[in-house]
């Protein structure tokens, strides 16, 4: 037995410990991520009945065809697009501006950083409740608006503004997170670049345009994509805001909320899974586009 080469024994031991170290990850990711993905892909082609007698009936592409004529899917997508178009640019710009200010040699900036970050660490359930309280018809926001002699709104009940209310809350809550990402990126810009630029007689404005912004480009890609993905997965706020209905008049309906409704309200699991698959494809496409763009940028 002892003549076995030391090297061989060692490599077996390494392999063994390697797999032992990986076991929890393999088991958990296998059961709760990889199997679910397979489940989703397969069952999206079935009609699944879970209430009472459980039954699976192959449905071919029926679930996918149904999506095309399902108005609520289009409304949810439309809400999401509107949301992306408004929230993502605003929160990104806000995050850059805040990060740039906090990156100057200003006293007490760490305090401001801690303070700004408060909304990001607060649960979306709590934030939604706080904002619902502020959005109340007689609430703080309307009092403030009428004090400024601006028009007031029925933030919770009017389909035209309900989604805007959630957007406002989301920008407020997410911008600080991206601000911190920008701050981290700003630390990586080599000071020598600025020094060299100063020697060449560059104005602060030129430095910003020619050094800072190009450096922030990859991070900005990242932030925008994260913003879009986050938006596609919006659920908590809409659910709590509308009591699970996506109302008023579907104004706060999101794709994930729609999936939840089809699965647990209409008990149409197969269709819900088909919607899930569609959402997954959209998100993964966005992510992959980001990855490829991101790579190119970093190799510049």
């Amino acid at each position: 037995m002892l003549n076995k080469t030391l090297w061989n024994k060692r490599s077996t031991r390494e392999t063994l410990s390697g797999y032992l170290f990986m076991t929890p990850a393999i088991v958990v990711l296998g059961i709760f991520l990889i199997i679910p993905v397979i489940f989703t892909i397969v069952l999206a082609f079935y009609r699944v009945q879970l209430l009472g007698e459980i039954s699976f009936r192959f449905a071919g592409f029926k679930n996918f065809v149904r999506m095309g004529s399902d108005e609520r899917v289009w409304i949810a997508l439309q809400n999401t697009v509107e949301y992306v178009a408004i929230v993502v640019p605003i929160q990104t710009i806000l995050a850059i501006v805040l990060a740039l200010i906090l990156n100057t040699q200003i006293k007490g900036k760490s305090w401001f950083r801690v303070a700004f970050f408060l909304p990001t660490v607060t649960s979306s359930a709590v934030l939604t409740l706080i904002f619902m309280w502020i959005y109340n018809t007689n609430g703080l926001l309307n009092s403030f608006l009428s004090f400024l002699r601006l028009p007031t709104y029925n933030w919770l009940g009017d389909p035209d503004v309900a989604l805007k209310g959630i957007m406002l809350m989301n920008i407020w809550a997410t911008a600080p997170l991206f601000m911190v990402i920008y701050l981290a990126a700003l630390q990586d810009i080599p000071e020598s670049l600025y020094e060299a630029a100063s020697i060449d007689g560059a104005t602060p404005w030129e430095k910003f345009w020619c050094i800072t912004l190009p450096f922030l480009k990859p991070v900005t890609f990242f932030v925008i994509v994260m913003g879009i993905i986050g938006t596609f997965q919006l659920f908590d706020q809409s659910y709590i805001f509308s009591g699970g209905s996506g109302g008023p008049n579907n104004a706060t309906l999101t794709i994930v909320l729609l999936i939840y409704q089809y699965a647990f309200k209409n008990l149409d699991m197969g269709y819900a899974l088909a919607l899930t698959l569609m959402l997954a494809l959209v998100i993964m496409t966005v992510t992959l586009i980001q990855r490829s763009l991101f790579k190119e940028e970093s190799f510049d």
Partner: peptide
């Protein structure tokens, strides 16, 4: 890493 959490919701429930 690319699979967002929400997507595995329903199968997780079934499992």
């Amino acid at each position: 890493l690319v699979v967002p959490g929400q997507i595995t919701l329903l199968p997780k429930f079934l499992i």
